[in-house]
């Protein structure tokens, strides 16, 4: 009887090991669960009631998720870019450029672009949001054009765009006085169930949509095909240039949503520092989530997990009192560990 039990347990264990080795999503999920358990332990249980503990725990979680919603959305776009075999370093700077366009549009000072034309309130917000999205797509399409049509290495093309976007934005905006109307902040700050969770909801919806796009649309599957074997993709009648360019447009578009959320969250933008390091944080999330830097393999769900792993780890380090300077080191460690793990899988 016990022997039989052992046998059964063994096969489950073996199955788990197999899954761990072959399915990056499974191993990422395992690590995430482990992190959450550690984090829960670190949070402690010294509360008078379960209710008090739960409210503390959930508030901590809402904080984590909300703080990472912006980068999280950017990382979703980055996932497509990396699966296609490219990289997008311009996301952080694009965020600033898009944010500037948005703020100019919704500016409530009387000499503001739209205000001076008599457009205020919701119509101005709508124009601002659409302009921001167009700007994101336009900047993405420049990168896309350079990579897909001009055959520049993605690293170089987007590095150039990264420098250009931030620098031009800072120059143009240095004298512009802008103020975001408080009504605009409702886009991200409206409370639901007493909590500010709108950014989390946006993130979630976009993740679900992009998950479906990656699995169930020709565009999504073509991105995988191109990343895995561009030559075969081309010889299968896929318009490789168009799909590759669209990947960068999608990334730019998602950056614009992150920018809108960020502006609506805090009502301002620091053009020198906002979004800086987003590209690396997004790449880290994508890589930790099991997407291969050489393209062709990966998933949206994995990136969400990857983002959460890094976020929870940060939170954990915070709870444990690790000095802030050291936290980045842990981030670096987990990225390297994740890729080493994936490499092992490939070899075995």
């Amino acid at each position: 009887m016990t022997q039989q039990m052992n046998k059964k347990e063994q096969t489950i264990l073996q199955k788990a090991v197999m899954q761990w080795k072959t399915n990056p999503l499974f191993s990422t999920a395992c690590v995430l669960v482990l992190m959450v358990v550690l984090q829960t332990l670190a949070l402690g249980f010294e509360f008078e009631s379960f209710g008090a503990w739960f409210s503390h725990w959930s508030r901590n979680w809402i904080n984590i998720l909300r703080n990472n919603a912006g980068v999280g959305i950017v990382a979703l776009g980055m996932t497509f870019v990396i699966i296609s075999g490219g990289i997008d370093l311009a996301v952080g700077s694009t965020l600033v450029a898009v944010g500037a366009v948005l703020m100019v549009c919704v500016n409530q000072y009387p000499d503001g672009l739209l205000t001076s034309m008599g457009i205020t309130g919701v119509p101005a917000f709508a124009i601002g949001i659409i302009a921001a999205m167009l700007m994101g797509c336009a900047l993405g399409s420049v990168s896309g054009f350079l990579v897909a049509k001009q055959k520049l290495p993605a690293f170089i093309a987007t590095l150039g765009m990264m420098k250009i976007c931030r620098s031009v934005t800072q120059q143009v905006m240095q004298t512009a006085g802008v103020k975001v109307p408080t009504q605009f902040l409702a886009i991200a700050n409206t409370k639901i169930g007493g909590q500010v969770i709108l950014p989390i909801i946006y993130w979630l919806i976009i993740a679900v949509v992009l998950h479906i796009v990656s699995k169930k649309t020709t565009f999504g599957r073509h991105v995988f095909a191109i990343g895995s074997n561009e030559r075969t993709a081309r010889l299968s009648g896929i318009n490789v240039e168009k799909v590759t360019a669209l990947v960068y447009v999608l990334s730019g578009f998602l950056v614009s949503i992150a920018a809108i959320i960020q502006v609506a969250r805090i009502g301002s933008m620091d053009y020198a520092n906002a979004g800086s390091g987003y590209e690396m944080d997004a790449i880290a999330a994508v890589v930790v989530g099991g997407t291969s830097m050489s393209g062709g393999k990966g998933s949206i769900l994995g990136t969400v997990f990857g983002m959460l792993i890094i976020a929870v780890m940060n939170n954990l380090l915070n709870l444990m009192g690790v000095p802030p300077f050291l936290r980045e080191a842990f981030k670096g460690f987990i990225v390297i560990a994740a890729v080493l793990l994936q490499k092992k899988e490939k070899n075995s």
Binding site: F224, A225, G227, S228, N229, R231, T232, A233, L235, G296, K297
Partner: peptide
């Protein structure tokens, strides 16, 4: 069009 060199041109190994 069925290309020559199946591995390089014909199949997508990650699919």
């Amino acid at each position: 069009y069925l290309p020559r060199n199946r591995k390089e041109n014909g199949i997508i190994k990650d699919m």
